[in-house]
């Protein structure tokens, strides 16, 4: 037997054969989209390493916000903040410097791996941005964010949508796909939500979507309105069923390879930047080898 077949045989016997889904059809709740009367904001961050010299890393972080009203983007409310992070490994933990300077609790990020520093700061900045926005929105507005932030203080009208999830069914299958399969048979042509814990739902935002997402909402009183509005904004055919403002904000906050290259060049091409060339060269030896030998 071919090894691939062996692998799949094992999985199907151990994971799929046990037909003990814990879901009940009754727990699916059907909902309708709601024409939003307020603004819909979306927040997301992106980061990327501009220069990795082994013992220190320079990275860039972008935090984007976009805003839609009546399905139209409000250009004046769209904004991207840019930050640069220098993180150096030392015996007493990471040394970190952020440009422009921001207030941040350094204790946590001092301890993590330096590759992780940029991500930690990005998540912190995203959270800050969401907090800041949530202070000023009205009760009809909705904030969409990618991922989940436990420590959000102001919990009104914030909908967290996760693109991926490690949630499992009892048998060990991915929860999202189990639910999706079940729903395909029993709830055709509807948008639905399925409560999986106190604040968490699995939601299908568009009846024709192939995907569902894990969604966290803290403000449970308003759940149908919030999900209805998100569904209303999930009709873009590029990825039907995924909230379009999140797609947009991902686009503006993402740091692409071209951008990384340009930034890297700018770091080197100034009178203080010379040493970066040799520092980086030493660190990227394996990358060069990769390129030469295996491509």
């Amino acid at each position: 037997m071919k090894i691939h077949q062996k692998i799949m045989e094992f999985i199907s016997k151990n994971v799929y054969s046990k037909n003990e889904f814990e879901f009940k059809i009754d727990n699916f709740k059907i909902f309708k989209d709601v024409e939003s009367i307020g603004n819909v904001y979306a927040v997301d961050g992106g980061c990327g390493v501009l220069c990795d010299c082994g013992s220190y890393i320079i990275s860039k972080i972008k935090i984007g916000v976009t805003c839609y009203e009546n399905m139209k983007r409000v250009s004046s409310s769209e904004k991207v903040d840019e930050y640069y992070v220098f993180a150096q490994k030392t015996d007493s933990g990471n040394v970190i410097k952020i440009f422009p300077e921001i207030e941040i609790n350094e204790n946590e990020i001092k301890k993590c791996k330096i590759e992780e520093v940029q991500n930690e700061i990005r998540r912190y900045l995203e959270w800050k941005k969401i907090e800041e926005l949530s202070e000023k929105i009205t009760s009809n507005d909705v904030i969409l964010a990618d991922g989940f932030f436990e420590k959000i203080k102001n919990e009104h009208n914030i909908v967290f949508v996760c693109k991926t999830s490690r949630l499992r069914s009892k048998s060990g299958r991915p929860l999202l796909s189990c639910l999706n399969d079940v729903s395909k048979e029993s709830i055709k042509n509807e948008k639905w939500m399925y409560k999986i814990s106190e604040n968490e739902y699995i939601v299908k935002f568009h009846e024709k979507s192939r995907f569902c997402y894990k969604v966290s909402v803290k403000n449970l009183n308003n759940i149908e309105y919030l999900l209805g509005v998100v569904a209303y904004y999930s009709k873009d055919p590029e990825i039907i069923g995924y909230p379009y403002p999140l797609l947009r904000v991902d686009k503006i906050a993402r740091i692409r390879n071209d951008e990384k290259k340009t930034e890297n060049r700018k770091l080197k091409n100034n009178k203080f930047g010379k040493f970066l060339v040799s520092d980086e060269d030493a660190a990227i030896m394996h990358e060069l080898l990769d390129k030469r030998m295996y491509r």
């Binding site: 399905m71 983007r73 024709k208 904004y233 009709k235 873009d236 055919p237 379009y244 403002p245 947009r248």
Partner: peptide
């Protein structure tokens, strides 16, 4: 499929 959609942007 007569899908209900809206082209954003």
């Amino acid at each position: 499929h007569d899908t209900d959609y809206n082209l954003f942007d």
